[in-house]
């Protein structure tokens, strides 16, 4: 009898497993074939000289060891793209997070009315199509007829050639990016703010803490996990800068807005230097990985200290 139940359980778990595998297979197969395999293939490719001839006949592919990476580190264009991308991430990222937090606090304040209405307005740019927005902002930044220079003229600021001047092109793209996506992080911050128990603020008020102290000693620490999450997804997204320079500046002027992904696209899909392009993709991946780990570490240290 004992044996019997065991057999039943066995056949039951077996059919249970097979149902689980049935549900998992389509998604996992798709992810494995069209995501994991390409990642591995890209890694292998980055050690080959895959180019336009290999595209025609795969036999032309040769392993070249670290040549692509060495070439990359000797390519001034790569360093330029790296520098531009870091500029965008390190200035645009924190700015975007700060604006999101400011907007979230504003819309979470008990003193502001019509919150859900403003929330939708602030969020609207997030759902727009980046390419279309880049086309629109190209005209907003027009040196003669653009809205931005017109607005600035009221403050006595002379017309700026936003997208034509290497000094201003990246700040212009940062401004566009912050406008486009602060609403997304704002919603996440609002969710985080609503999760902070009111009692904490009440207790602080009873203890005589003013608004600034409440913000510094309750809001900021309680929001730390949200801030980490927001910072990481913002950083990952910002490292992938592509459509804005592609549409607005083609990486110019003087390569001042050339990003890693744009360089990767040009090398891989315009000049078909696919091995070289794959090594660029991997450098980007490693940078994003290190960036995420550093933020985790900083967060941990912040919690301990």
């Amino acid at each position: 009898m004992y044996k019997g139940t065991r057999q039943i359980t066995n056949s039951f778990t077996k059919s249970f497993y097979s149902a689980a595998y049935f549900f998992l297979t389509p998604a996992l197969a798709a992810i494995f074939i069209f995501f994991f395999l390409p990642v591995i293939a890209a890694f292998v490719m980055s050690f080959t000289d895959f180019d336009i001839y290999s595209l025609g006949n795969i036999q032309y592919v040769r392993f070249v060891g670290f040549r692509n990476y060495l070439q990359l580190f000797n390519d001034p264009l790569f360093w330029q793209a790296l520098q531009n991308t870091f500029y965008f991430v390190l200035v645009g990222g924190p700015l975007s997070v700060a604006v999101s937090l400011g907007a979230a606090i504003l819309l979470n304040s008990k003193l502001v009315r019509f919150k859900s209405f403003f929330r939708v307005i602030y969020f609207a740019p997030v759902v727009t199509t980046l390419v279309a927005i880049a086309v629109v902002w190209r005209f907003v930044y027009h040196p003669r007829f653009g809205l931005l220079n017109y607005f600035l003229s009221f403050f006595g600021i002379n017309p700026i050639d936003w997208l034509g001047d290497p000094t201003y092109a990246m700040p212009a793209i940062i401004l566009l990016a912050v406008w486009k996506n602060f609403g997304y992080n704002m919603i996440i911050f609002i969710a985080g703010l609503q999760n902070i128990p009111d009692e904490l603020y009440e207790a602080a008020r009873i203890d005589g803490a003013n608004a600034r102290q409440q913000f510094l000693y309750i809001t900021i620490p309680m929001l730390a996990p949200t801030t980490l999450f927001v910072s990481i997804i913002t950083m990952i997204g910002y490292f992938q800068l592509f459509a804005e320079p592609y549409v607005m500046t083609q990486g110019g002027p003087l390569n001042s807005t050339l990003s890693i992904v744009l360089l990767m696209y040009q090398q891989g899909f315009r000049w078909w230097n696919m091995g070289y392009s794959a090594s660029l993709a991997f450098v980007l991946f490693v940078i994003i990985l290190i960036g995420s780990l550093v933020q985790f570490k900083l967060q941990k240290r912040g919690e301990e200290g």
Partner: peptide
């Protein structure tokens, strides 16, 4: 694996689809 940017997959994926 969510930290892996999609751009990494694009070159081999293009060749595969080709």
């Amino acid at each position: 694996t969510m930290v892996i940017p999609a751009q990494v997959t694009m070159l081999p994926l293009f060749l595969m689809l080709n």
